[in-house]
Design a protein around this nucleic acid. Structure first.
Lengths: 333, 333
DNA sequence: TTGTACGCGTTATCAA
DNA sequence: TTGATAACGCGTACAA
């Protein structure tokens, strides 16, 4: 570490005690105006920089929060991270961020790390963290630290889940498509996270409620490769050519689908209607523009942080919150 | 903060001294096997959690790095953040992340924050940090901390810039288009960062070198709104209908352009060829797929971190590095 | 191989 | 309004 000067150096140069310097730095009320001015002058001349480690140790408070995200590729969550950071920052917290991967054991390892850093709150981005290994790690390492999980839920007296109603969102999209006369549906999803399972359930319920004499298929593509997503769509159209509606678990996958359909010469939405999910910034830019289910990333992120801040203030907060999701219709349906 | 137990608690329960506990925790060699076992046993039974603040204070080393990013909307850089974090993490560093915005004064404020947290290295994501205010802040607050700037350069004995050759990338793309007989070029860019200025220069040089009897226009759209990007493209086609090639400073803006062209019924690439920049994950998914200049985000991010780690090891590192960029051709040209 | 004693930079308590 | 002094939790010479 660099050889910065300490409050003692400042104290000496200003001819006061270290405690007085500390008081000045922290804007304590009862400090003589002149001494304060003098101390401030010395500080500005002495390239003094506070040491937050020492401060954390003395105050027993780090003013740090932790953010865990599983995978770079889920661009959806990466955007949420910034909402979370921004809200924490506004409230005086610094954010430690870790990329954990999807392996629960690894995720647990990072929870341990966060506990050693003594973060005062944690946000888990995404339902991939909804597993018992993580739950146990929280119980063991962060039993008294408020933890929020975006788009998921875990049982625990210090854990707060904020989900969007993805079940309802998919349901509504099926209703929309049914209203337009579509009959034969396919739902294409990537790795089956709890969140994706919810969507599938919404899909199935939607089929029961709104579609008669139709067909429905669920396809899982446990991959992160665009090529695999495109191939899944191609295969669907090969093996089940009467398909006239495809719903994807994420915009990104839907865009891959749109691309495959485009190259196959399938017209969207005339022959096949396409729906994505997340209402990402890219949905409106595809050709044709993509109808997408908005699962309210911004709101869930914000609420997650605000819940944590409330808990830190000693307020009681609901352990399970859900936000309505909506279908944003565009040219692909 | 929670009432965790300390090495003293462990020491007492294990019937040893605190220093011995410390030695066990840090895997010091000369500890009796039995005492080590005993201490470890007590630790595992006593939900002991290291306090990194105290540790940082004692060792004079936080093992933390800082990452500054200007704007959520530049998805390009948000992806870089994860490469950076991953590389730091692999080397035992935790990352503090801040969203600074584009105002240099604000950026400087966050550099001050990082200095108080005593981070041991800093990465600035993007050329928006290439300004004197930031440069001064580094000199004042982080004079001895290695700082890397991705896709930019700042003068300073502790500052290390890693850029991709965007000038050359755009140059090559003009060459490519010229080879296909395109004559009337437009370059559309968002806010004029130093990086974008480089691209514009590459564009102009490319025009001089490769295009005869053609026209070239540069359009700046200082906005973050998709609608503005789309409108810019529409206006270009209205006011200069003979345009047959458009290069955009970012894929995202190019996608907005593609979308506008699609809605206007302009055929790509038959009537107008389109080139984007960043080679983002979305470039391959557009319809038609977008030819894009790859500015090697992954490589620049990685090298930025590795440079910092080298400097921390005492190695001498080049203050200015550049990586070649390439044109990835797809259906839009 | 282990324990003592002190330092890291700050804040908090108490007296003055 | 200020200054000693003792924490905060851990690492580390030094001594034993």
């Amino acid at each position: 570490m660099t050889q910065d000067s300490t409050i003692y150096d400042i104290a000496e140069k200003a001819g006061v005690s270290a405690s007085t310097v500390s008081r000045v730095i922290n804007n304590y009320p009862y400090v003589n105006k002149e001494t304060r001015a003098k101390v401030l002058k010395v500080i500005s001349e002495s390239n003094y920089i506070k040491n937050d480690s020492a401060r954390s140790l003395a105050t027993q408070s780090t003013k740090m929060a932790g953010i865990l995200i599983a995978d770079v590729r889920t661009t959806h969550h990466t955007e949420g991270v910034y909402y979370v950071e921004h809200e924490f920052s506004k409230n005086g917290y610094s954010c430690l961020i870790y990329n954990t991967g999807t392996d629960p054991e690894q995720q647990a390892k990072y929870i341990h790390l966060l506990s050693q850093r003594k973060v005062e709150a944690v946000v888990l981005m995404g339902s991939v963290f909804q597993n018992v290994t993580v739950q146990n790690a929280i119980m063991v390492y962060l039993p008294n630290t408020p933890v929020a999980i975006c788009n998921g839920y875990l049982d625990g007296q210090n854990i707060y889940g904020v989900t969007s109603d993805e079940h309802g969102g998919v349901l509504k999209s099926v209703q929309l498509l049914a209203g337009k006369g579509h009959k034969n549906y396919v739902f294409i999803t990537n790795k089956m996270t709890p969140s994706n399972q919810e969507k599938v359930n919404g899909f199935k319920d939607g089929m029961k409620l709104y579609v008669e004499n139709g067909s429905s298929v669920v396809v899982e593509v446990p991959s992160n490769e665009v090529a695999d997503y495109e191939e899944a769509t191609r295969r669907v159209m090969r093996e089940k050519p009467d398909t006239d509606a495809i719903i994807y678990s994420e915009d990104y996958i839907a865009l891959a689908g749109l691309h495959a359909l485009y190259e196959m010469g399938v017209r969207v939405p005339e022959e096949v209607a396409v729906v994505g999910m997340n209402n990402s910034r890219y949905a409106q830019l595809s050709n044709p523009a993509l109808t997408s289910i908005d699962n309210m990333l911004y709101d869930t992120s914000l609420i997650a942080v605000r819940n944590l801040l409330e808990v830190l203030k000693g307020e009681r907060v609901n352990h399970k919150m859900s936000i309505g999701s909506e279908v944003v219709e565009r040219a692909s349906t």
